[in-house]
Design a protein around this nucleic acid. Structure first.
Lengths: 188, 188
DNA sequence: GTCTATATTCGGATAGAC
DNA sequence: GTCTATCCGAATATAGAC
């Protein structure tokens, strides 16, 4: 693995664990086993490195989500697959976590991958729901975009509740609740 | 207002804006218009002051939520009142934000008010839903605790989506989606 | 490309005068 | 109770040798 790659991966991990404000260049260099000079040679300081790390995390998240959403099955089953995917609940979402940090939100290069990821995810889930409607699997009713936003919010909010409780139960409850409500939308 | 109160209020604001890791004693003192000595005289450093601020924010949040949930009306209307309350969406939740900070989660005195607030909120909403069931307003089905967790998660996740988008729309969508799903649980 | 020095400011806190 | 002085290490970065 190249020095750049080691720096990017270490940054991904640290941003996940400690957030942007809580992650220092020092800590990144140590985790990557790289000196200060190397980091500043390859990247434009902490923001540049973080931007690269976030772009990479965003790509990876997208690929994982697409695998669930493009799976065979009914719309309900595909959304359920997304909601029930195995997650490291107490670690939370690498991308969603960034939205809480004002330094990230204030920097266009850092916020862009976060914004794009959620925009894509909501759009993709809305598509799945709209398809389910067209196929007659789901009742017509609420805007698919609204339902998709609710689904994504349940996951992101579930992480918040789980960390607050220092346990996974609230996350699992929220997902079960959301699935029960979605299940009631299926045609008989 | 006493010096203590000014310190606590300034800390509440800064924790909301910048999070725990991003809030320095210096910044607190300046916002409160108080010297270093005063702060360390009245509180046990940053953690002690933050604990006091979080307890106060938790009380306030609880009071506001209770007002909506104890309002007259059907269970659906009361939950809708909670979901549709006016919020400063882009600022997010003072309590939920803390759950993302590893320094908060690691310190029992800081995590306690966060945990208790969400536990209370989920329980209170579950009560409202259970009452609706008993009164025949809502169909029997999913566990009220699961539905309550989903409701709270939609709000917390909605904040995440809104900040990611730098706009309130995703929050409003998520709430509309959740309300549409809940509305379908009403008896005819 | 990578390393070691060095610089500056901030974070978090203590000491002791008033 | 409040203020100023002071301390030490960390955060973030630059300079320049190798």
């Amino acid at each position: 693995m190249t020095t750049q790659d080691r720096l990017v991966e270490s940054t991904q991990d640290l941003l996940w664990e400690r957030g942007y404000t809580g992650t220092s260049p020092r800590a990144i260099q140590q985790r990557a086993g790289v000196g200060q000079g190397s980091m500043y040679h390859h990247f434009e300081g902490k923001p540049g490195l973080a931007a690269a790390a976030l772009r990479r995390s965003a790509e990876q998240l997208r690929a994982v989500a697409e695998a669930d959403l493009a799976a065979p099955g009914t719309a309900y089953e595909r959304v359920a697959g997304y909601l029930l995917r195995e997650r490291d609940v107490l670690r939370g979402c690498r991308i969603g976590r960034m939205a809480q940090d004002p330094e990230v939100v204030a920097d266009a290069r850092l916020r862009a991958p976060v914004e794009e990821t959620f925009e894509w995810l909501r759009g993709r889930i809305a598509e799945v729901i709209a398809e389910g409607r067209e196929r007659g699997e789901l009742r017509p009713g609420a805007d698919p975009g609204d339902l998709a936003a609710a689904v994504v919010a349940v996951v992101q909010g579930g992480y918040v509740l789980a960390r607050a409780a220092d346990g996974t139960e609230p996350f699992e409850r929220a997902v079960r609740g959301a699935l029960a409500l979605l299940a009631a939308q299926r045609t008989d």
